[in-house]
């Protein structure tokens, strides 16, 4: 999927974790994933560089599909699909 497509994905849930440092965004993602259905798409907003690495790895381990990361001004939007 190209960046432009990812940017325009419609998400079921958006988790704004920009106010927290590691491990905040990962835990916010973990808590939020329990509130959506399999196949739903979630984005995590984070200003923490580590989240860019953590969330894709976490998706691999948990079986969720990591879709991609979009860099915005001062933060990242990390997209994933729940297994």
């Amino acid at each position: 999927m190209i960046l432009e497509d990812i940017k325009n994905i419609s998400v079921t849930k958006s988790v704004d974790a920009r106010g927290t440092a590691c491990p905040g965004p990962l835990l916010e993602a973990k808590k939020a994933i329990g509130t959506i259905k399999p196949g739903d798409i979630m984005e995590v907003l984070s200003a923490d560089e580590g989240t860019k690495v953590d969330i894709p790895k976490w998706c691999t381990k948990q079986g969720h599909e990591y879709i991609g990361t979009v860099e915005e001004s001062g933060y990242f939007r990390i997209f994933l699909k729940k297994k």
Binding site: C22, P23, L27, A29, K61
Partner: peptide
């Protein structure tokens, strides 16, 4: 505490 958070995220 930070390490525990990682463990929690990984179930």
């Amino acid at each position: 505490g930070v390490i525990l958070s990682g463990a929690a995220a990984d179930d």
